[in-house]
Design a protein around this nucleic acid. Structure first.
Lengths: 348, 348
DNA sequence: CTGAAAGCGCTTACAG
DNA sequence: CTGAAAGCGCTTACAG
């Protein structure tokens, strides 16, 4: 038999984990006292405090949040269910959520569902078991059942979505006004024949608002022409196809307002590939200010939503709700921006 | 005094939380038995199981993972510290991590540090206190101190970075070969004067490998010309500026290989804005296959790294390490792809 | 200011 | 197959 020298250090690597008990023993005080100095929850005499702090320092003791969580019934965990993390706006919202959360000691449990209802259900259960204190749902649209299940969790819940339901805490911009302003802007630039391209696949409450914003701008400015096209299905591809259809009616309009940047870029690509000059022949405007809009040539004129702020405001709202403030619930609208870039031509 | 009717339902909304104890009482068994049926950990007679399941069903009981965590010493939480969630490759890696993690019951604690060392330190502490079982660090570069602190946590740890240290578990592609292949490809397309643009700001071990890959390709193909430029600082801006410098030496080269897509796009924009035609006059190649590369015109030829797979493989490795498999540690290289698009012109 | 004790909601030997 | 008991690492009345 060979005997192997085992150093203290090696042992500690295996199953170290020093606890509050160890600290108490080493500092020759009760665990209550240790707890008090860690949390600064009750007065402790200076000498005792120093003694305890010294032991903590020496041992490198770190409180176990799981144990603390169990007794305080506070997890400081916030669930964030996103449909697609790869969308740039999602990352921005998450950043807002995270930064404000960090200020208040909350952490993010990230759950990407890729729009799968089953995955969302599983995550909802999981967040419940993990004692998440609140949750965010971010994505264009969520199934009724999911919204129902999220509500049944009886946890504070905030949505970032394009399909707004009743009793839903929701933060966004005023999409109706946004499209109204965009259409008005095009009119001011001298456009008289403006079409709107709607997103059929994701037909939602917000899409209805956008359409009515478009129509109202047309009406308020006494334009004679208005026309709504609908793209059906997977955005970029379908928008590209629709673009080819639009080319056939090229003389009909001088500008197109799109329900989303994805659609706008799809149409623009289709125009360019087919020799229709943007913005010389046709102006195009999008909605959402996705990152790609700045890389596309010409750069896309669009509506900007302050996603970071949207996330930050959402987190503030959620925290208030966690604290029991019922008044915070409801809708909330943040100011949007009109990003004037190169895809729109001035006609006057 | 007014008395308000309070229904059972309302009460349960306040401070419900039914526990294993309640289930045991209602099913008239011990909590051990309830635990056994929940976890399927030991045989339970069919009738008893049915009885317990029925109560669980009726009460909607959900086990408290925090309590379970405390006793099992398993949190099933994996910390992911990212520098910038908004970068598309990060989202892809996280997706890989998450999907494999989900298969094994692990959840992601997301920590965005925006390259702040202080934030990273705080998150490291936090992940420790939350009993995270392992962690990922994803970002171009991490400070020595951070790497040290991460190591001291004594938790399985995997990096996705461009600055590889010794004893670091790391997953990526073979960047040396990648640049070698890209340069070779340009040579095969007839280019004889090829420059390389290096990333000075993020000078890292991987950058050194890239440079030597470039030089080796030049040498292996017996080209007489080679030249390395360096961009200093914030990528897109600085690359744009460097582009203007390059234009002065336009006749010197026919192709430029860049250390990253960001640099390539910056230079390309600069060329285009200054009337230098890409790829007619100069061909450009990037590295990384960021989403923007497909939106830029001409579309950018680049090296693709399978980020999703990189994340997935990383998670697999981490899980093995959590299970105590020491052999899994070290470097791991996945195959890259050469994305041939429009920014490179064939000269032969 | 300090400590002993109870308890948070679970799991898991141990004994039967 | 089942239950009583101990214990995971903490916090927090309670008593002094």
């Amino acid at each position: 038999m060979t005997s192997v020298a085992v150093t203290k250090d090696e042992i500690s690597k295996e199953e170290n984990m020093i606890t509050i008990k160890d600290v108490a023993r080493l500092a020759d005080v009760s665990i209550s006292t240790v707890s008090r100095v860690i949390n600064d929850s009750k007065p402790v005499s200076p000498e005792v405090r120093r003694k305890v702090l010294k032991v903590i320092e020496e041992t490198g003791y770190k409180p176990n949040d799981v144990a603390r969580s169990l007794v305080t019934r506070r997890s400081y965990l916030i669930g964030v269910i996103v449909n697609n993390l790869a969308q740039s706006y999602v990352a921005d919202i998450v950043r807002g959520i995270e930064e404000i959360g960090k200020m208040y000691g909350y952490d993010i449990l990230l759950c990407s569902s890729y729009s799968s209802k089953e995955t969302q259900e599983k995550y909802l259960q999981l967040l419940d078991r993990k004692q998440a204190e609140g949750l965010f749902l971010v994505g264009n649209k969520f199934d009724e059942k999911i919204i129902e299940q999220a509500t049944e969790l009886n946890k504070p819940c905030v949505y970032f979505t394009r399909d707004v339901h009743e009793n839903m805490n929701h933060i966004s911009i005023d999409c109706n006004s946004a499209i109204y302003e965009m259409t008005k802007y095009l009119i001011q630039e001298g456009h008289k024949e403006i079409i709107y391209v709607s997103d059929f696949e994701n037909r939602s409450t917000v899409e209805d608002e956008k359409i009515s914003g478009y129509l109202k701008a047309i009406e308020d400015n006494e334009l004679e022409f208005s026309k709504i096209y609908v793209v059906g299905g997977n955005k970029h591809n379908k928008a590209y196809e629709l673009g080819e259809t639009l080319i056939k009616n090229k003389g009909e309009f001088t500008a197109v307002v799109c329900s989303s940047d994805e659609i706008a870029i799809g149409i623009m690509d289709s125009f360019i590939d087919n020799g229709v000059k943007v913005p010389e022949e046709v102006s195009i405007a999008g909605f959402g200010n996705i990152r790609e809009g700045k890389f596309v040539r010409p750069e896309l004129t669009t509506i900007g939503e302050p996603y970071y702020d949207v996330g930050a405001v959402g987190m503030r709202m959620l925290i208030k709700m966690i604290k029991g403030d019922k008044t915070q619930q409801g809708l909330m609208e943040l100011p949007f921006t009109l990003e004037k870039r190169k895809s729109v031509k001035t006609l006057v």
